[in-house]
């Protein structure tokens, strides 16, 4: 039983680390700013989430101490990740960052943003 839980914890931690790594890889690899925004906000949230889930499982099964605090960390990250992504995107639109997409909507919104 304990061995099984250990494997599960190891799997969760590895999954979390993989997603965190892929998120940062996306930050470096993707060509323009708004695409880069996708990597960290998604991959990193699940990355930390998986890792925290693993550690909750570990402390509950091995150390016999259930801590609800750890849920709060991931809950807080899940709430704040969209907010920070939104405000960074807003700042980027404000500065009129170049991007590859062909669109009229973006220009339009930029105009409305500056006239605001």
């Amino acid at each position: 039983m304990a061995v099984f839980i250990e494997y599960l914890v190891a799997a969760l931690i590895l999954i979390g680390a993989t997603f965190a790594l892929i998120g940062s890889l996306g930050l470096v690899k993707l060509p323009d700013f708004f695409q880069r925004l996708h990597g960290p906000t998604k991959a990193t949230t699940l990355g930390v989430g998986g890792m925290i889930l693993g550690s909750i499982l570990f402390f509950t099964a091995v150390e016999r101490t259930f801590q609800f605090q750890e849920f709060l960390v991931s809950l807080f990250l899940f709430i704040t990740a969209p907010a920070s992504a939104y405000i960074i995107a807003k700042a980027a639109l404000h500065l009129k960052i170049q991007h590859n997409a062909d669109d009229s909507t973006k220009k339009e919104s930029n105009d409305s943003n500056t006239s605001e």
Binding site: F34, H38, T41, A81, P82, A85, Y86, A89, L93
Partner: peptide, 10 residues
């Protein structure tokens, strides 16, 4: 923002 490939920007 949290779901498939989309981020709300403004």
């Amino acid at each position: 923002t949290l779901t498939p490939g989309t981020v709300s920007a403004e």
